[in-house]
Simulated scan of single mutants.
Amino acid sequence: MLDDSDRRLLRHLQADPGQPVTQLSEAAGLPLATTYKRLERLQAQGILKGQRATIHWPALGYAVEVSLRITLDKTEPRAFDEFLAAARAVPEVTEIQTFLGRVDVRLAVIARTMSHYQDIYRDRILTLPHIADIEALMQVATIKNQQTLPL
């Protein structure tokens, strides 16, 4: 699976995904050619899925984040598929998760203000198909948002 060199590379990559490969190889204590080969292998194995930008929504004026826990009316066979397709089309929905249990789906929704959120909720969320129950949780603070693994 992973050896110590792979783990070192991944630790340094998690800490600073935007660093140049030359800096990454130096930090991991590996030759540049070896670093390239290992990164290619980790991508080929599906361990590295790519790099992405993490956007700090409040810096762009999105000060409100709400988590919606939704239970669907599952009497319709296509309820999940139709709901998910419609939810994907809402631009302010930044994350969709499905669950087994009492709650079927969780949506993360961002808005600029509470008034903006109310418009999104009324005009876009409540019009989504097959909603049987919905619970809104207003985010007050993010205490931990760790996207890294202890390697």
Rank of each mutant, 00 (worst) to 15 (best):
D6W: 05
A15D: 12
A136V: 06
M1R: 09
T35W: 01
S5D: 11
V109R: 05
W57K: 04
F83R: 00
E82S: 10
D3E: 09
L72F: 06
I143D: 09
Y36M: 08
P91W: 04
A87E: 05
Q19Y: 03
G46D: 10
G50L: 05
L13C: 02
N145R: 15
E40N: 10
T34N: 06
T35A: 14
L24E: 02
P77F: 12
V93F: 03
I134W: 02
R41P: 02
R52D: 04
D81A: 15
E95F: 08
A15T: 05
I96K: 01
G101V: 04
P31G: 14
L128D: 00
K37V: 07
L107H: 02
F83S: 00
H116W: 02
P17L: 11
L151M: 12
E82K: 08
E95C: 11
L68A: 14
R7P: 04
D3S: 10
A141Y: 10
D4V: 06
L151R: 04
E40P: 00
A89F: 05
E135Q: 14
E65S: 14
V21W: 02
P58I: 03
Q147N: 11
L126H: 13
K49R: 15
Q19W: 03
G46K: 07
D3K: 08
G101R: 11
L137R: 13
D4N: 13
P20S: 12
L48V: 13
T94W: 06
G29D: 05
K74N: 12
T54E: 12
A59E: 10
R52P: 00
P129E: 03
A87Y: 07
H56W: 08
A136D: 14
L60C: 03
D73A: 11
L126A: 05
A85G: 03
A79K: 00
A63C: 05
E95S: 15
R11E: 14
V103N: 13
R112W: 02
Q146N: 15
L100W: 15
P17T: 06
L151Y: 15
I131T: 07
T113F: 00
A86Y: 02
L24F: 01
L32K: 08
Q118W: 10
A15L: 12
L24D: 00
E40M: 06
T35S: 09
D133I: 01
A132G: 10
T71W: 08
S25C: 04
L2A: 09
A44I: 01
F83T: 00
A59W: 04
L10H: 07
R102S: 13
L13Q: 02
D81N: 11
R88H: 11
R41N: 10
L9T: 03
L39N: 07
R7N: 07
H116R: 03
A79C: 06
Q139R: 15
A27Y: 03
P17H: 09
R11S: 11
Y36E: 11
D16R: 12
K37E: 11
T94H: 04
D133N: 14
R52W: 06
K49T: 15
